[in-house]
Design a protein around this nucleic acid. Structure first.
Length: 590
DNA sequence: GTAGGGTTAG
Protein backbone atom coordinates (compact mmCIF):
# COMPACT_ATOMS: atom_id res chain seq x y z
CA UNK A 1 0.00 0.00 0.00
CA UNK A 2 1.15 3.43 -0.84
CA UNK A 3 1.69 5.74 2.15
CA UNK A 4 -1.31 7.94 2.51
CA UNK A 5 0.28 11.14 1.36
CA UNK A 6 -2.51 13.59 0.95
CA UNK A 7 -2.84 14.71 -2.57
CA UNK A 8 -1.68 18.21 -3.09
CA UNK A 9 -4.30 19.06 -5.58
CA UNK A 10 -7.68 20.38 -4.66
CA UNK A 11 -10.87 18.37 -5.22
CA UNK A 12 -11.82 20.80 -7.95
CA UNK A 13 -8.54 20.22 -9.76
CA UNK A 14 -9.00 16.46 -9.48
CA UNK A 15 -12.45 16.70 -11.00
CA UNK A 16 -11.08 18.82 -13.78
CA UNK A 17 -8.26 16.38 -14.57
CA UNK A 18 -10.64 13.44 -14.53
CA UNK A 19 -12.94 15.09 -17.00
CA UNK A 20 -9.96 16.02 -19.16
CA UNK A 21 -8.90 12.37 -19.32
CA UNK A 22 -12.45 11.27 -19.97
CA UNK A 23 -12.95 13.64 -22.85
CA UNK A 24 -9.50 13.12 -24.29
CA UNK A 25 -10.35 12.33 -27.89
CA UNK A 26 -6.88 12.12 -29.38
CA UNK A 27 -4.11 9.98 -28.02
CA UNK A 28 -1.63 12.77 -28.59
CA UNK A 29 -3.36 14.84 -25.88
CA UNK A 30 -2.25 12.29 -23.31
CA UNK A 31 1.17 13.90 -23.24
CA UNK A 32 -0.27 17.29 -22.25
CA UNK A 33 -2.47 15.69 -19.63
CA UNK A 34 0.52 13.81 -18.23
CA UNK A 35 2.42 17.10 -17.95
CA UNK A 36 -0.55 18.70 -16.25
CA UNK A 37 -0.80 15.86 -13.74
CA UNK A 38 2.87 16.35 -12.88
CA UNK A 39 2.41 20.10 -12.65
CA UNK A 40 -0.49 19.83 -10.27
CA UNK A 41 1.35 17.11 -8.37
CA UNK A 42 -1.65 14.81 -8.58
CA UNK A 43 0.32 11.73 -9.60
CA UNK A 44 -0.27 10.32 -6.15
CA UNK A 45 -4.01 10.61 -6.58
CA UNK A 46 -5.06 6.99 -7.29
CA UNK A 47 -8.26 8.01 -9.07
CA UNK A 48 -6.31 10.03 -11.55
CA UNK A 49 -3.46 7.61 -12.09
CA UNK A 50 -5.86 4.76 -12.75
CA UNK A 51 -8.03 6.76 -15.06
CA UNK A 52 -4.95 7.92 -16.93
CA UNK A 53 -3.43 4.45 -17.23
CA UNK A 54 -6.62 2.88 -18.47
CA UNK A 55 -7.17 5.68 -20.95
CA UNK A 56 -3.63 5.15 -22.25
CA UNK A 57 -4.22 1.39 -22.36
CA UNK A 58 -7.23 1.77 -24.60
CA UNK A 59 -5.36 4.14 -26.89
CA UNK A 60 -4.29 3.05 -30.33
CA UNK A 61 -1.60 0.42 -30.38
CA UNK A 62 1.81 1.99 -30.35
CA UNK A 63 1.26 5.44 -28.83
CA UNK A 64 -0.78 4.72 -25.74
CA UNK A 65 1.52 2.25 -24.11
CA UNK A 66 4.43 4.69 -24.30
CA UNK A 67 2.49 7.27 -22.29
CA UNK A 68 1.32 4.59 -19.88
CA UNK A 69 4.84 3.21 -19.37
CA UNK A 70 6.31 6.67 -18.74
CA UNK A 71 3.53 7.51 -16.33
CA UNK A 72 3.73 4.17 -14.54
CA UNK A 73 7.48 4.44 -13.98
CA UNK A 74 6.87 7.61 -11.96
CA UNK A 75 4.49 5.95 -9.54
CA UNK A 76 6.45 5.06 -6.41
CA UNK A 77 4.59 2.07 -5.01
CA UNK A 78 2.08 1.02 -7.62
CA UNK A 79 -1.08 -0.63 -6.34
CA UNK A 80 -2.48 -3.88 -7.70
CA UNK A 81 -4.95 -1.90 -9.78
CA UNK A 82 -2.16 0.20 -11.24
CA UNK A 83 -0.10 -2.88 -12.07
CA UNK A 84 -3.16 -4.41 -13.71
CA UNK A 85 -3.80 -1.29 -15.74
CA UNK A 86 -0.19 -1.31 -16.94
CA UNK A 87 -0.22 -5.01 -17.85
CA UNK A 88 -3.51 -4.45 -19.62
CA UNK A 89 -1.91 -1.65 -21.62
CA UNK A 90 0.97 -3.92 -22.62
CA UNK A 91 -1.31 -6.81 -23.52
CA UNK A 92 -3.09 -4.70 -26.09
CA UNK A 93 0.06 -3.10 -27.47
CA UNK A 94 2.83 -4.08 -29.85
CA UNK A 95 4.92 -5.27 -26.92
CA UNK A 96 2.75 -7.80 -25.10
CA UNK A 97 5.83 -9.56 -23.71
CA UNK A 98 6.47 -6.52 -21.49
CA UNK A 99 3.25 -7.40 -19.71
CA UNK A 100 4.63 -10.78 -18.77
CA UNK A 101 7.89 -9.22 -17.54
CA UNK A 102 5.91 -6.88 -15.36
CA UNK A 103 3.88 -9.82 -14.05
CA UNK A 104 7.11 -11.58 -13.04
CA UNK A 105 8.32 -8.36 -11.45
CA UNK A 106 5.10 -8.23 -9.41
CA UNK A 107 5.71 -11.70 -8.07
CA UNK A 108 9.34 -10.89 -7.34
CA UNK A 109 8.19 -7.89 -5.30
CA UNK A 110 5.70 -10.06 -3.46
CA UNK A 111 2.86 -8.02 -4.91
CA UNK A 112 -0.51 -9.77 -4.78
CA UNK A 113 -2.08 -10.66 -8.12
CA UNK A 114 -5.74 -11.28 -8.87
CA UNK A 115 -7.64 -13.07 -11.67
CA UNK A 116 -7.54 -9.90 -13.75
CA UNK A 117 -3.77 -9.85 -13.68
CA UNK A 118 -3.74 -13.38 -15.07
CA UNK A 119 -6.43 -12.47 -17.56
CA UNK A 120 -4.31 -9.70 -19.06
CA UNK A 121 -1.31 -12.02 -19.13
CA UNK A 122 -3.32 -14.61 -21.02
CA UNK A 123 -4.20 -11.89 -23.48
CA UNK A 124 -0.49 -11.16 -23.92
CA UNK A 125 0.21 -14.84 -24.54
CA UNK A 126 -2.58 -14.97 -27.12
CA UNK A 127 -1.06 -12.03 -28.91
CA UNK A 128 2.39 -13.61 -28.80
CA UNK A 129 1.02 -17.06 -29.58
CA UNK A 130 3.40 -18.20 -26.87
CA UNK A 131 2.45 -21.67 -25.73
CA UNK A 132 5.11 -21.82 -23.02
CA UNK A 133 4.06 -18.46 -21.63
CA UNK A 134 0.44 -19.55 -21.49
CA UNK A 135 1.27 -22.84 -19.83
CA UNK A 136 3.14 -20.96 -17.11
CA UNK A 137 0.22 -18.62 -16.57
CA UNK A 138 -2.14 -21.59 -16.45
CA UNK A 139 0.03 -23.13 -13.74
CA UNK A 140 -0.05 -19.87 -11.81
CA UNK A 141 -3.82 -19.65 -12.13
CA UNK A 142 -4.16 -23.06 -10.53
CA UNK A 143 -1.64 -22.30 -7.77
CA UNK A 144 -3.33 -18.99 -6.99
CA UNK A 145 -6.69 -20.70 -6.76
CA UNK A 146 -8.24 -18.66 -9.53
CA UNK A 147 -9.48 -21.66 -11.48
CA UNK A 148 -13.11 -21.02 -10.74
CA UNK A 149 -13.17 -17.66 -12.47
CA UNK A 150 -15.21 -18.29 -15.61
CA UNK A 151 -14.06 -15.21 -17.47
CA UNK A 152 -10.43 -16.04 -16.88
CA UNK A 153 -10.97 -19.63 -17.96
CA UNK A 154 -12.74 -18.46 -21.10
CA UNK A 155 -9.70 -16.40 -22.01
CA UNK A 156 -7.49 -19.39 -21.28
CA UNK A 157 -9.61 -21.58 -23.54
CA UNK A 158 -9.26 -19.09 -26.32
CA UNK A 159 -5.53 -19.13 -25.76
CA UNK A 160 -5.30 -22.93 -26.16
CA UNK A 161 -7.54 -22.77 -29.17
CA UNK A 162 -5.33 -20.19 -30.84
CA UNK A 163 -2.30 -22.38 -30.16
CA UNK A 164 -4.17 -25.25 -31.87
CA UNK A 165 -4.42 -27.15 -28.61
CA UNK A 166 -8.09 -27.98 -28.89
CA UNK A 167 -7.96 -30.81 -26.39
CA UNK A 168 -6.55 -28.55 -23.72
CA UNK A 169 -9.14 -25.93 -24.59
CA UNK A 170 -11.91 -28.48 -24.19
CA UNK A 171 -10.42 -29.65 -20.90
CA UNK A 172 -10.57 -26.09 -19.58
CA UNK A 173 -14.14 -25.80 -20.85
CA UNK A 174 -15.13 -29.00 -19.04
CA UNK A 175 -13.75 -27.69 -15.79
CA UNK A 176 -15.56 -24.40 -15.91
CA UNK A 177 -18.04 -24.00 -13.08
CA UNK A 178 -20.40 -21.94 -15.22
CA UNK A 179 -20.64 -21.63 -18.97
CA UNK A 180 -22.30 -18.62 -20.48
CA UNK A 181 -22.82 -17.83 -24.15
CA UNK A 182 -19.34 -16.39 -24.53
CA UNK A 183 -17.79 -19.58 -23.20
CA UNK A 184 -19.80 -21.61 -25.70
CA UNK A 185 -18.79 -19.18 -28.42
CA UNK A 186 -15.14 -19.68 -27.63
CA UNK A 187 -15.67 -23.43 -27.75
CA UNK A 188 -17.29 -23.01 -31.16
CA UNK A 189 -14.48 -20.81 -32.41
CA UNK A 190 -12.06 -23.45 -31.17
CA UNK A 191 -13.89 -26.11 -33.19
CA UNK A 192 -13.84 -23.84 -36.22
CA UNK A 193 -10.14 -23.17 -35.95
CA UNK A 194 -9.42 -26.83 -35.51
CA UNK A 195 -11.60 -27.87 -38.43
CA UNK A 196 -14.24 -29.57 -36.33
CA UNK A 197 -16.98 -27.81 -38.28
CA UNK A 198 -19.60 -30.47 -37.78
CA UNK A 199 -19.28 -30.12 -34.03
CA UNK A 200 -20.06 -26.43 -34.47
CA UNK A 201 -23.45 -27.27 -35.96
CA UNK A 202 -24.10 -29.77 -33.18
CA UNK A 203 -23.37 -27.15 -30.53
CA UNK A 204 -25.72 -24.69 -32.22
CA UNK A 205 -28.48 -27.29 -32.20
CA UNK A 206 -27.81 -28.03 -28.56
CA UNK A 207 -27.94 -24.35 -27.71
CA UNK A 208 -31.27 -23.66 -29.41
CA UNK A 209 -32.56 -26.92 -27.95
CA UNK A 210 -32.00 -25.48 -24.49
CA UNK A 211 -29.36 -28.04 -23.57
CA UNK A 212 -26.65 -25.50 -22.82
CA UNK A 213 -28.56 -23.20 -20.53
CA UNK A 214 -27.92 -20.22 -22.76
CA UNK A 215 -29.08 -19.06 -26.15
CA UNK A 216 -26.90 -18.32 -29.18
CA UNK A 217 -26.14 -14.63 -29.61
CA UNK A 218 -24.95 -12.64 -32.62
CA UNK A 219 -21.37 -13.85 -32.23
CA UNK A 220 -22.52 -17.48 -32.09
CA UNK A 221 -24.37 -16.93 -35.35
CA UNK A 222 -21.28 -15.42 -36.98
CA UNK A 223 -19.28 -18.50 -36.08
CA UNK A 224 -21.95 -20.96 -37.11
CA UNK A 225 -22.40 -19.23 -40.46
CA UNK A 226 -18.69 -19.68 -41.06
CA UNK A 227 -19.04 -23.35 -40.32
CA UNK A 228 -22.00 -23.62 -42.74
CA UNK A 229 -19.89 -21.86 -45.30
CA UNK A 230 -17.04 -24.32 -45.07
CA UNK A 231 -19.37 -27.32 -44.94
CA UNK A 232 -21.40 -26.02 -47.87
CA UNK A 233 -24.38 -26.54 -45.55
CA UNK A 234 -26.79 -24.00 -47.00
CA UNK A 235 -29.85 -25.57 -45.37
CA UNK A 236 -28.34 -25.23 -41.94
CA UNK A 237 -27.27 -21.72 -42.86
CA UNK A 238 -30.89 -20.97 -43.65
CA UNK A 239 -31.84 -22.21 -40.20
CA UNK A 240 -29.33 -19.82 -38.66
CA UNK A 241 -30.78 -17.08 -40.86
CA UNK A 242 -34.26 -17.75 -39.47
CA UNK A 243 -32.91 -17.68 -35.95
CA UNK A 244 -31.26 -14.34 -36.67
CA UNK A 245 -34.58 -12.90 -37.81
CA UNK A 246 -36.41 -14.35 -34.82
CA UNK A 247 -33.96 -12.86 -32.38
CA UNK A 248 -34.17 -9.48 -34.06
CA UNK A 249 -30.54 -9.45 -35.16
CA UNK A 250 -31.64 -8.79 -38.74
CA UNK A 251 -30.17 -5.31 -38.81
CA UNK A 252 -26.72 -6.33 -37.61
CA UNK A 253 -24.35 -5.46 -40.44
CA UNK A 254 -21.77 -8.09 -39.54
CA UNK A 255 -24.38 -10.82 -39.53
CA UNK A 256 -25.84 -9.76 -42.85
CA UNK A 257 -22.38 -9.64 -44.37
CA UNK A 258 -21.70 -13.10 -43.08
CA UNK A 259 -25.02 -14.32 -44.51
CA UNK A 260 -24.13 -12.87 -47.90
CA UNK A 261 -20.85 -14.74 -47.85
CA UNK A 262 -22.40 -17.99 -46.69
CA UNK A 263 -25.18 -17.95 -49.27
CA UNK A 264 -22.99 -16.92 -52.17
CA UNK A 265 -20.27 -19.42 -51.36
CA UNK A 266 -22.91 -22.13 -51.19
CA UNK A 267 -24.09 -21.09 -54.63
CA UNK A 268 -27.35 -19.49 -53.50
CA UNK A 269 -26.69 -16.14 -55.07
CA UNK A 270 -30.37 -15.17 -55.11
CA UNK A 271 -30.57 -15.47 -51.35
CA UNK A 272 -27.33 -13.56 -50.95
CA UNK A 273 -28.88 -10.81 -53.06
CA UNK A 274 -32.02 -10.80 -50.95
CA UNK A 275 -30.03 -10.27 -47.78
CA UNK A 276 -27.99 -7.58 -49.47
CA UNK A 277 -31.03 -5.72 -50.77
CA UNK A 278 -32.71 -5.90 -47.38
CA UNK A 279 -29.83 -4.14 -45.63
CA UNK A 280 -30.56 -0.59 -44.59
CA UNK A 281 -26.91 0.18 -43.99
CA UNK A 282 -24.34 -1.34 -46.32
CA UNK A 283 -20.64 -0.89 -45.70
CA UNK A 284 -17.57 -1.71 -47.76
CA UNK A 285 -17.61 -5.27 -46.42
CA UNK A 286 -21.19 -5.82 -47.62
CA UNK A 287 -20.38 -4.64 -51.11
CA UNK A 288 -17.14 -6.60 -51.26
CA UNK A 289 -18.88 -9.75 -50.08
CA UNK A 290 -21.45 -9.35 -52.83
CA UNK A 291 -18.79 -8.67 -55.45
CA UNK A 292 -16.68 -11.69 -54.46
CA UNK A 293 -19.82 -13.81 -54.34
CA UNK A 294 -20.75 -12.86 -57.87
CA UNK A 295 -17.15 -13.44 -58.91
CA UNK A 296 -17.05 -16.95 -57.47
CA UNK A 297 -20.32 -17.80 -59.15
CA UNK A 298 -18.93 -16.80 -62.51
CA UNK A 299 -21.07 -13.70 -62.84
CA UNK A 300 -18.21 -11.37 -63.68
CA UNK A 301 -20.22 -8.71 -65.51
CA UNK A 302 -22.63 -8.37 -62.59
CA UNK A 303 -19.72 -8.18 -60.17
CA UNK A 304 -18.38 -5.21 -62.11
CA UNK A 305 -21.84 -3.64 -62.17
CA UNK A 306 -22.04 -4.08 -58.41
CA UNK A 307 -18.66 -2.42 -58.07
CA UNK A 308 -19.84 0.57 -60.11
CA UNK A 309 -23.04 0.76 -58.06
CA UNK A 310 -20.91 0.77 -54.95
CA UNK A 311 -19.00 3.80 -56.20
CA UNK A 312 -22.29 5.54 -57.00
CA UNK A 313 -23.38 4.84 -53.42
CA UNK A 314 -20.26 6.69 -52.29
CA UNK A 315 -18.75 3.69 -50.57
CA UNK A 316 -14.97 3.79 -50.90
CA UNK A 317 -13.46 0.48 -52.11
CA UNK A 318 -10.55 -1.06 -50.23
CA UNK A 319 -7.98 -3.72 -51.03
CA UNK A 320 -10.39 -6.60 -50.55
CA UNK A 321 -12.96 -5.01 -52.83
CA UNK A 322 -10.38 -5.10 -55.56
CA UNK A 323 -9.52 -8.71 -54.81
CA UNK A 324 -13.18 -9.42 -55.56
CA UNK A 325 -13.29 -7.27 -58.68
CA UNK A 326 -10.08 -8.73 -60.08
CA UNK A 327 -11.10 -12.28 -59.32
CA UNK A 328 -14.41 -11.56 -61.09
CA UNK A 329 -12.38 -10.58 -64.13
CA UNK A 330 -10.16 -13.64 -63.90
CA UNK A 331 -13.04 -16.08 -63.38
CA UNK A 332 -14.91 -14.64 -66.33
CA UNK A 333 -11.97 -14.02 -68.64
CA UNK A 334 -12.40 -10.22 -68.70
CA UNK A 335 -8.78 -9.43 -69.52
CA UNK A 336 -9.04 -5.78 -70.58
CA UNK A 337 -11.35 -4.87 -67.71
CA UNK A 338 -9.03 -6.57 -65.26
CA UNK A 339 -6.03 -4.63 -66.54
CA UNK A 340 -7.92 -1.37 -66.19
CA UNK A 341 -9.03 -2.07 -62.61
CA UNK A 342 -5.54 -3.24 -61.68
CA UNK A 343 -4.03 0.02 -62.92
CA UNK A 344 -6.86 2.11 -61.49
CA UNK A 345 -6.68 0.76 -57.96
CA UNK A 346 -3.27 2.27 -57.25
CA UNK A 347 -3.76 5.35 -59.41
CA UNK A 348 -7.26 6.37 -58.29
CA UNK A 349 -7.53 4.78 -54.86
CA UNK A 350 -3.91 4.69 -53.67
CA UNK A 351 -4.11 0.99 -52.94
CA UNK A 352 -0.82 -0.87 -53.41
CA UNK A 353 -1.44 -4.24 -55.03
CA UNK A 354 -0.86 -7.14 -52.63
CA UNK A 355 -0.23 -10.82 -53.35
CA UNK A 356 -3.93 -11.51 -53.84
CA UNK A 357 -4.21 -8.82 -56.49
CA UNK A 358 -1.11 -10.08 -58.25
CA UNK A 359 -2.49 -13.59 -57.95
CA UNK A 360 -5.68 -12.57 -59.76
CA UNK A 361 -3.71 -10.84 -62.49
CA UNK A 362 -1.38 -13.80 -63.00
CA UNK A 363 -4.44 -16.01 -63.17
CA UNK A 364 -6.18 -13.67 -65.59
CA UNK A 365 -3.20 -13.30 -67.93
CA UNK A 366 -2.19 -16.92 -67.57
CA UNK A 367 -5.58 -18.38 -68.43
CA UNK A 368 -5.88 -16.00 -71.36
CA UNK A 369 -2.67 -17.50 -72.67
CA UNK A 370 -0.40 -14.52 -72.03
CA UNK A 371 1.97 -16.69 -70.04
CA UNK A 372 5.04 -14.59 -70.68
CA UNK A 373 3.25 -11.44 -69.61
CA UNK A 374 2.13 -13.21 -66.44
CA UNK A 375 5.71 -14.32 -65.77
CA UNK A 376 6.96 -10.76 -66.34
CA UNK A 377 4.33 -9.45 -63.92
CA UNK A 378 5.55 -11.81 -61.21
CA UNK A 379 9.14 -10.73 -61.75
CA UNK A 380 8.08 -7.08 -61.57
CA UNK A 381 6.45 -7.46 -58.14
CA UNK A 382 7.87 -5.15 -55.50
CA UNK A 383 7.47 -7.78 -52.79
CA UNK A 384 8.82 -11.29 -53.13
CA UNK A 385 6.31 -13.53 -54.91
CA UNK A 386 5.00 -16.27 -52.63
CA UNK A 387 4.41 -19.86 -53.56
CA UNK A 388 0.70 -19.30 -54.28
CA UNK A 389 1.57 -16.88 -57.06
CA UNK A 390 3.92 -19.38 -58.67
CA UNK A 391 1.30 -22.08 -58.32
CA UNK A 392 -1.22 -19.93 -60.13
CA UNK A 393 1.18 -19.58 -63.02
CA UNK A 394 1.87 -23.31 -62.90
CA UNK A 395 -1.87 -23.90 -63.26
CA UNK A 396 -1.89 -21.70 -66.35
CA UNK A 397 1.07 -23.63 -67.75
CA UNK A 398 -1.00 -26.77 -67.39
CA UNK A 399 -3.96 -25.30 -69.26
CA UNK A 400 -1.74 -24.19 -72.10
CA UNK A 401 0.59 -27.20 -71.96
CA UNK A 402 3.65 -25.02 -71.61
CA UNK A 403 6.37 -27.43 -70.55
CA UNK A 404 9.42 -25.17 -70.36
CA UNK A 405 7.79 -22.41 -68.34
CA UNK A 406 6.17 -25.04 -66.12
CA UNK A 407 9.58 -26.48 -65.33
CA UNK A 408 10.93 -23.03 -64.62
CA UNK A 409 8.06 -22.31 -62.23
CA UNK A 410 8.73 -25.54 -60.37
CA UNK A 411 12.33 -24.45 -60.10
CA UNK A 412 11.15 -21.18 -58.48
CA UNK A 413 9.02 -23.20 -56.07
CA UNK A 414 11.99 -25.38 -55.23
CA UNK A 415 14.00 -22.27 -54.53
CA UNK A 416 11.31 -21.13 -52.09
CA UNK A 417 11.41 -24.61 -50.55
CA UNK A 418 7.67 -24.55 -50.93
CA UNK A 419 6.91 -27.44 -53.22
CA UNK A 420 3.81 -29.35 -52.38
CA UNK A 421 2.31 -32.51 -53.72
CA UNK A 422 -0.14 -30.43 -55.76
CA UNK A 423 2.71 -28.80 -57.64
CA UNK A 424 4.08 -32.13 -58.80
CA UNK A 425 0.59 -33.17 -59.80
CA UNK A 426 0.35 -30.07 -61.98
CA UNK A 427 3.76 -30.84 -63.46
CA UNK A 428 2.60 -34.40 -64.09
CA UNK A 429 -0.45 -32.94 -65.79
CA UNK A 430 1.69 -30.84 -68.06
CA UNK A 431 3.91 -33.76 -69.06
CA UNK A 432 1.00 -36.11 -69.56
CA UNK A 433 -0.90 -33.52 -71.61
CA UNK A 434 1.97 -33.47 -74.10
CA UNK A 435 2.38 -37.23 -73.87
CA UNK A 436 5.82 -37.20 -72.28
CA UNK A 437 5.35 -40.39 -70.27
CA UNK A 438 9.03 -40.69 -69.53
CA UNK A 439 8.95 -37.47 -67.56
CA UNK A 440 5.71 -38.51 -65.93
CA UNK A 441 7.37 -41.67 -64.67
CA UNK A 442 10.36 -39.67 -63.52
CA UNK A 443 8.23 -37.27 -61.48
CA UNK A 444 6.21 -40.14 -60.03
CA UNK A 445 9.40 -41.89 -58.99
CA UNK A 446 10.68 -38.70 -57.41
CA UNK A 447 7.42 -38.27 -55.51
CA UNK A 448 7.51 -41.83 -54.28
CA UNK A 449 11.14 -41.64 -53.19
CA UNK A 450 10.53 -38.40 -51.33
CA UNK A 451 7.29 -39.66 -49.87
CA UNK A 452 5.30 -36.79 -51.27
CA UNK A 453 1.67 -37.50 -50.57
CA UNK A 454 -1.02 -36.05 -52.77
CA UNK A 455 -4.13 -34.61 -51.19
CA UNK A 456 -6.90 -37.10 -51.77
CA UNK A 457 -9.85 -35.65 -53.64
CA UNK A 458 -12.92 -35.51 -51.45
CA UNK A 459 -16.47 -34.52 -52.29
CA UNK A 460 -19.25 -33.84 -49.82
CA UNK A 461 -22.96 -33.69 -50.44
CA UNK A 462 -25.40 -32.56 -47.78
CA UNK A 463 -28.85 -34.12 -47.67
CA UNK A 464 -31.33 -33.31 -44.93
CA UNK A 465 -28.60 -31.75 -42.87
CA UNK A 466 -26.36 -34.81 -43.03
CA UNK A 467 -22.99 -34.42 -44.70
CA UNK A 468 -21.98 -37.40 -46.82
CA UNK A 469 -18.34 -37.63 -47.76
CA UNK A 470 -16.83 -39.44 -50.72
CA UNK A 471 -13.25 -40.06 -51.80
CA UNK A 472 -11.97 -41.68 -54.99
CA UNK A 473 -13.03 -45.31 -55.23
CA UNK A 474 -14.84 -44.85 -51.95
CA UNK A 475 -16.28 -48.03 -50.50
CA UNK A 476 -17.11 -46.75 -47.04
CA UNK A 477 -20.64 -45.51 -47.62
CA UNK A 478 -23.38 -47.77 -46.23
CA UNK A 479 -25.21 -47.62 -49.55
CA UNK A 480 -22.08 -48.24 -51.63
CA UNK A 481 -23.53 -51.09 -53.70
CA UNK A 482 -26.54 -49.05 -54.72
CA UNK A 483 -24.29 -46.09 -55.47
CA UNK A 484 -21.99 -48.03 -57.77
CA UNK A 485 -24.94 -49.61 -59.55
CA UNK A 486 -26.52 -46.19 -59.97
CA UNK A 487 -23.26 -44.75 -61.26
CA UNK A 488 -22.98 -47.46 -63.91
CA UNK A 489 -26.58 -46.83 -64.90
CA UNK A 490 -25.94 -43.08 -65.15
CA UNK A 491 -22.78 -43.79 -67.16
CA UNK A 492 -24.66 -45.70 -69.82
CA UNK A 493 -27.46 -43.12 -69.95
CA UNK A 494 -24.95 -40.33 -70.44
CA UNK A 495 -23.07 -42.21 -73.12
CA UNK A 496 -26.27 -42.43 -75.13
CA UNK A 497 -26.53 -38.65 -74.79
CA UNK A 498 -23.03 -38.26 -76.17
CA UNK A 499 -20.84 -38.14 -73.08
CA UNK A 500 -17.32 -39.37 -73.78
CA UNK A 501 -14.84 -39.75 -70.91
CA UNK A 502 -12.15 -37.11 -71.19
CA UNK A 503 -9.17 -39.34 -70.81
CA UNK A 504 -6.62 -36.54 -70.56
CA UNK A 505 -7.86 -36.07 -66.97
CA UNK A 506 -6.31 -39.39 -66.04
CA UNK A 507 -2.61 -39.06 -65.47
CA UNK A 508 -1.45 -42.63 -65.71
CA UNK A 509 -0.15 -44.02 -68.94
CA UNK A 510 -2.89 -46.54 -69.47
CA UNK A 511 -5.03 -47.71 -72.34
CA UNK A 512 -8.03 -45.47 -73.03
CA UNK A 513 -10.36 -48.11 -71.69
CA UNK A 514 -8.52 -48.35 -68.40
CA UNK A 515 -8.39 -44.58 -68.15
CA UNK A 516 -12.12 -44.32 -68.63
CA UNK A 517 -12.60 -46.90 -65.90
CA UNK A 518 -10.45 -45.05 -63.42
CA UNK A 519 -12.17 -41.76 -64.10
CA UNK A 520 -15.60 -43.20 -63.59
CA UNK A 521 -15.13 -43.44 -59.83
CA UNK A 522 -13.96 -39.93 -59.04
CA UNK A 523 -15.45 -38.70 -55.79
CA UNK A 524 -17.61 -36.11 -57.59
CA UNK A 525 -19.29 -38.82 -59.64
CA UNK A 526 -19.90 -41.00 -56.59
CA UNK A 527 -21.47 -38.08 -54.77
CA UNK A 528 -23.66 -37.23 -57.76
CA UNK A 529 -24.79 -40.84 -58.07
CA UNK A 530 -25.67 -40.85 -54.41
CA UNK A 531 -27.56 -37.59 -54.82
CA UNK A 532 -29.60 -38.94 -57.74
CA UNK A 533 -30.27 -42.07 -55.73
CA UNK A 534 -31.28 -40.38 -52.51
CA UNK A 535 -33.34 -37.39 -53.65
CA UNK A 536 -36.57 -37.05 -55.63
CA UNK A 537 -36.36 -35.75 -59.21
CA UNK A 538 -35.97 -32.00 -59.44
CA UNK A 539 -33.95 -31.60 -56.26
CA UNK A 540 -30.88 -29.44 -56.68
CA UNK A 541 -27.70 -31.34 -55.88
CA UNK A 542 -25.12 -29.35 -53.98
CA UNK A 543 -21.61 -30.72 -53.80
CA UNK A 544 -18.31 -29.41 -52.55
CA UNK A 545 -14.89 -30.64 -53.57
CA UNK A 546 -11.62 -29.84 -51.85
CA UNK A 547 -9.63 -29.66 -55.12
CA UNK A 548 -10.34 -28.36 -58.60
CA UNK A 549 -12.99 -30.31 -60.46
CA UNK A 550 -11.45 -32.20 -63.38
CA UNK A 551 -12.48 -31.74 -67.02
CA UNK A 552 -14.10 -35.13 -67.14
CA UNK A 553 -16.27 -34.65 -64.07
CA UNK A 554 -17.22 -31.26 -65.46
CA UNK A 555 -18.40 -32.82 -68.72
CA UNK A 556 -20.14 -35.56 -66.80
CA UNK A 557 -22.09 -33.05 -64.70
CA UNK A 558 -23.02 -31.00 -67.74
CA UNK A 559 -24.51 -33.90 -69.63
CA UNK A 560 -26.16 -35.23 -66.49
CA UNK A 561 -27.87 -31.92 -65.80
CA UNK A 562 -29.63 -32.23 -69.11
CA UNK A 563 -30.32 -36.00 -69.22
CA UNK A 564 -31.62 -36.13 -65.65
CA UNK A 565 -33.05 -32.62 -65.69
CA UNK A 566 -31.31 -31.66 -62.48
CA UNK A 567 -29.58 -28.53 -61.30
CA UNK A 568 -26.17 -29.49 -59.96
CA UNK A 569 -24.09 -26.97 -58.04
CA UNK A 570 -20.49 -27.92 -57.41
CA UNK A 571 -18.16 -25.85 -55.35
CA UNK A 572 -14.52 -26.58 -55.93
CA UNK A 573 -11.48 -25.04 -54.34
CA UNK A 574 -11.75 -21.79 -56.17
CA UNK A 575 -15.23 -21.29 -57.56
CA UNK A 576 -18.77 -22.53 -58.12
CA UNK A 577 -20.17 -24.39 -61.07
CA UNK A 578 -23.90 -24.28 -61.75
CA UNK A 579 -24.90 -27.05 -64.13
CA UNK A 580 -28.27 -26.82 -65.79
CA UNK A 581 -29.71 -27.99 -69.11
CA UNK A 582 -26.36 -29.27 -70.34
CA UNK A 583 -24.43 -26.09 -69.59
CA UNK A 584 -22.22 -24.74 -66.86
CA UNK A 585 -22.27 -21.19 -65.55
CA UNK A 586 -18.51 -21.02 -65.96
CA UNK A 587 -18.82 -21.48 -69.74
CA UNK A 588 -16.02 -24.01 -69.51
CA UNK A 589 -13.71 -21.21 -68.45
CA UNK A 590 -12.00 -22.38 -65.33
C1' DG B 1 -13.05 2.61 -3.14
C1' DT B 2 -10.84 3.96 -7.79
C1' DA B 3 -10.95 0.67 -12.89
C1' DG B 4 -10.24 -3.24 -15.06
C1' DG B 5 -11.16 -9.21 -18.00
C1' DG B 6 -13.33 -13.53 -22.29
C1' DT B 7 -15.98 -14.64 -28.28
C1' DT B 8 -17.05 -11.03 -33.50
C1' DA B 9 -18.30 -10.03 -40.91
C1' DG B 10 -15.78 -9.55 -46.84
Amino acid sequence: MRPATPSSCSPGATEHLLSLIKSCAHDSHLRQIHARILRTRSLEEPTISLRFLSRAASASVSGGVTYARRFFSQIKNPSLAEFNAMIRAYSGSDSPAEGLYLYREMRRLGQRTDPLTSSFCVKSCIKMESLTGGLQIHGRIVRDGHQSDSLLLTALMDFYSICYKSEEACAVFDEMPERDTVAWNVLISCYLRNRRTRDVLAVFDAMIGGECGCQPDDVTCLHVLQACNSLNAVEFGGKVHEYIEERGYGDAVKLCNSLITMYSRCGSMDKAFMVFKGMRVKNVVSWSALISGLAMNGRGKEAIEAYLAMLRANVVPDDQTFTGVLSACSHSGLVDEGMLFFEGMSKDFKITPNVHHYGCMVDLLGRAGSLDQAYELILSMSSKPDSTIWRTLLGACRIHRHVTLGERVVWHLTELKAQEAGDYVLLLNIYSSVGDWEKVTEVRKFMKENQIQTTPGCTTITLNGIVHEFTVDDVSHPRQNEIYTMLDEIGSQLKIAGYVPEISSELHNLSSEEKGYRLSYHSEKLAIAFGILATPPGTTLRLANNLRICVDCHNFAKVLSSVYDRIVVIRDRSRLHHFQGGHCSCNDYW
